[in-house]
Amino acid sequence: MKLLDVRGVTKTFGKLKAVDSIEFGVEAGQICGFIGPNGAGKTTTMRMCATLEMPDTGDVYVDGISVLEEPRLARRRIGFMPDSYGAYANTTISDYLDFFARAYGLTGAKRRGVIERVVEFTSLGDLLDKEIGSLSKGMKQRLCLAKTLLHDPAVMILDEPAAGLDPRARVELRELVKALAQMGKAILISSHILTELSEMCSSVVVIERGQLKGGGAVADVVRSFNSTTQLFLRALAGPEACERRLLESPNVAKVRRERDGVAFEFAGGLDSQAELFAELAQSGLRPIELAVRDSNLEDIFLSLTEGKLQ
């Protein structure tokens, strides 16, 4: 069942169509990566999912509840972590979590229990009396995640949670997100760090200039966009000779030099690929490496998007 269901959502700011008839869904236990260049409409879409912006047309259903008709009910099922981290001055972690737990209507022992659990989950136990202003970026992100979990939302919308984090903090965040998915939460996460996303996401949605460019399970998306095979050739004759020879071959495109070799796309089938390998071996280039490269999210993203900003 889709816990987050975005149906034909459009949003316009003045003359700018920030989001144009986007449709996708995220199921329970799924981590959906939301990728696109800056200004593509990711944050606007996420804010509409979180009820913070109103779609001009279309609707978003959170656990079956329309964000337009019952925004208040929908909010109880949403955990939104914005890209700009929100913190109060002169407030400790303990007070911050206590305030939001109260704001979510948690009382007495239940409130204390919930705070204990999220503090344990995010490993903030030793920092409870620290003022938020003195925390590192990674710790602030953990705190924001802890706050987002207080009311046990079914759907989590995380806007650039890994931005500005060091590698260790990123790995820790990734493990937390995976653990949340295992709890059955539907997670929509945006990030520019595509290698991170490919390691944790079960599906992706690609958006550019407000329009959906593709989406689905990561493997399916990669497969569906793999009409060509990415190959890499390194030979003793040098990259220049390789490039010259490859440009003469049929089915070869986008030849570019990489390190001391040449990367290129091959559009033929397996038979043609085998013929090409044989030709290259006999061509006098003296190949020392000829490898098929797996496509990843980065390649898909680059091939799907033109990188233009709105």
């Binding site: 979180a50 009820t51 913070l52 909010r75 109880r76 949403i78 939104f80 914005p82 700009s84 981290y85 929100g86 913190a87 109060y88 001055a89 939001f100 704001a103 979510y104 209507g105 706050k147 009311h151």
Partner: peptide, 13 residues
């Protein structure tokens, strides 16, 4: 200024 407005609006308050 502290970006807490959205967080407040999203709560039960």
């Amino acid at each position: 200024d502290e970006n807490t407005h959205d967080l407040l609006v999203l709560s039960n308050l």
